[in-house]
């Protein structure tokens, strides 16, 4: 029996290891997030800063169609602030006379996507489609670390030395395609997205500055990943909290059942 369990454990471990090893050959940048681990929670200050980065930078090309403006109240914005953010956006909707027209957004609306559809998005981006970011962190192996690294993985291909190329496992005939950027961490190393984030691109509010939060590239990348992690699973904290209660309860119930089983079986053995 023990053998069976051990074999199962080894097999599972090797399977999951395999799943995470896919993609790039390059090791991701080291970073740790507060939401990781079985008891991890979101740092809502970081999520708010990340929202600012998303709004000012990413939103120009990437949608966030599964998140509604009202959800921003969960990250600590006031009702009035959410209303103002929503009202700043023009949402296409049926008007009173049955025509499609823009109206100011409401908290109940979901984030407006920058392009009406995929074809329009491709037409505006040299044929590339900027994916919706609602689930980006869940949709990539080791998503948070991957996106964090990707945002900082841009290199000037012309300046790479032969050794660096070799270390990344680039083929000898590797050539950059037109309109593509070199990125260490992107599978295939050629990404259509131009370097999106630069140091100092977003200015955080005074409160963040007072806390000593810089706006260098690693910080911006970390914050926006934090926001996207929240966007991909807003109910994560509820899940973990419920989980602690559920597992503790089941352990107690298992103990009780074991005691009952022992007593019932006492006269058989």
């Amino acid at each position: 029996m023990r053998k069976l369990l051990a074999t199962a454990a080894v097999a599972l471990a090797s399977l999951s290891g395999q799943a995470f090893a896919e993609g790039s050959d390059v090791k991701l940048l080291p970073v740790s997030f507060s939401f990781e681990g079985p008891f991890g929670t979101y740092d809502y200050h970081a999520v708010q800063r990340g929202f600012q980065v998303y709004k000012e930078v990413c939103a120009a090309c990437h949608g966030l169609s599964l998140v509604a403006y009202r959800n921003l109240q969960q990250i600590g914005l006031s009702e009035a602030a959410v209303k103002a953010i929503a009202a700043d956006v023009q949402i296409r909707d049926l008007n009173d006379v049955g025509e499609m027209a823009d109206r100011p957004g409401r908290p109940a609306d979901r984030f407006r996507s920058p392009f009406p559809n995929e074809l329009a998005a491709r037409a505006a981006n040299n044929g590339a489609y900027p994916p919706d970011l609602s689930l980006m962190i869940k949709a990539r192996p080791n998503g948070a670390h991957y996106v964090y690294s990707l945002l900082q993985g841009y290199e000037d291909f012309a300046k790479l030395t032969a050794d660096q190329k070799k270390a990344m496992g680039l083929a000898a005939d590797f050539k950059m395609q037109p309109n593509m950027q070199f990125n260490k961490f992107f599978p295939g190393h050629q990404i259509a997205m131009p370097k999106p984030l630069n140091e100092g691109q977003v200015t955080y509010n005074e409160e963040a500055q007072k806390e000593g939060i810089k706006n260098d590239l690693p910080q911006l990348a970390k914050d926006v990943v934090h926001f996207l992690a929240w966007a991909s699973e807003p109910k994560m904290e509820e899940r973990k909290k419920t989980g602690v209660k559920a597992v503790l309860f089941l352990v107690i119930l298992a103990g009780l059942f074991y005691a009952v089983k022992r007593k019932v079986w006492a006269d058989v053995h």
Partner: peptide, 19 residues
Amino acid sequence: TKDGFALIVFLTIYAAVVF
């Protein structure tokens, strides 16, 4: 009782993965 105990242990592992 015996199956009940085994069931609860199984459900505990299940819950740990779910949560």
